[in-house]
Computed example of a mutant assay.
Amino acid sequence: MSPEYAMEGQFSFKSDVYSFGVLLLEIVTGRKNSGQYDDITTTNLVGHIWDLWKDGRAMEIVDECLLEESWSDGEVERCIQIGLLCVQDYATDRPSMAAVLSMLGNDSALPSPKHPAFIFKRRTNYDGSDPSTSEGVHSVNDVSMTMIEAR
Rank of each mutant, 00 (worst) to 15 (best):
E64P: 06
D63I: 12
I80W: 01
G21E: 03
S19W: 01
M97T: 09
G74S: 14
G105W: 09
S12I: 01
S102P: 03
K121N: 11
E68G: 08
P3E: 02
V28I: 15
R78L: 04
P116A: 02
G21H: 03
K114E: 09
T42Y: 07
S144Q: 09
S108D: 08
S112A: 14
A58Q: 12
T92D: 12
G35Q: 11
T42K: 14
V28A: 13
Q10W: 07
R94F: 00
T29I: 07
V17D: 02
L84E: 02
E77Q: 09
V46P: 00
E26Y: 04
R78F: 04
G74P: 06
C65N: 14
V87T: 07
T133M: 08
N141H: 13
G21Y: 01
I82K: 02
I40V: 14
E60Q: 10
E77I: 00
I40S: 01
F13A: 14
W53G: 00
F120V: 10
G83C: 04
S15N: 06
W50K: 00
T92A: 11
E60K: 12
T133F: 06
V28F: 08
P95E: 00
L104T: 08
V17Y: 02
Y126K: 15
S132N: 04
N106Y: 08
C65F: 15
K54D: 00
Q36K: 12
S96N: 06
N44M: 05
Q88R: 04
F11H: 10
V22P: 00
E64C: 12
R122A: 10
C65V: 14
S2R: 02
S15V: 09
N125F: 05
D107E: 10
Y126G: 13
S72L: 10
M59L: 15
S102G: 07
C79P: 02
E77C: 06
F11K: 08
R94W: 00
N33V: 13
D127M: 09
I27M: 11
A109N: 13
V143H: 09
E75T: 11
P3D: 03
V17T: 15
I82T: 03
Y18G: 01
A58L: 11
D89L: 10
Y126F: 14
V87F: 00
L85E: 04
E8D: 11
E64K: 13
Q10I: 15
D127L: 13
H115D: 13
D55F: 01
I148M: 09
T43P: 10
I61T: 07
A6I: 04
I80M: 03
E4M: 05
R78G: 03
M103Q: 07
S139Q: 05
L24S: 04
V46L: 06
T146I: 11
D73I: 13
R122N: 11
S108V: 13
V137M: 12
Q10V: 15
R151M: 10
S12C: 02
E26M: 08
N106Q: 12
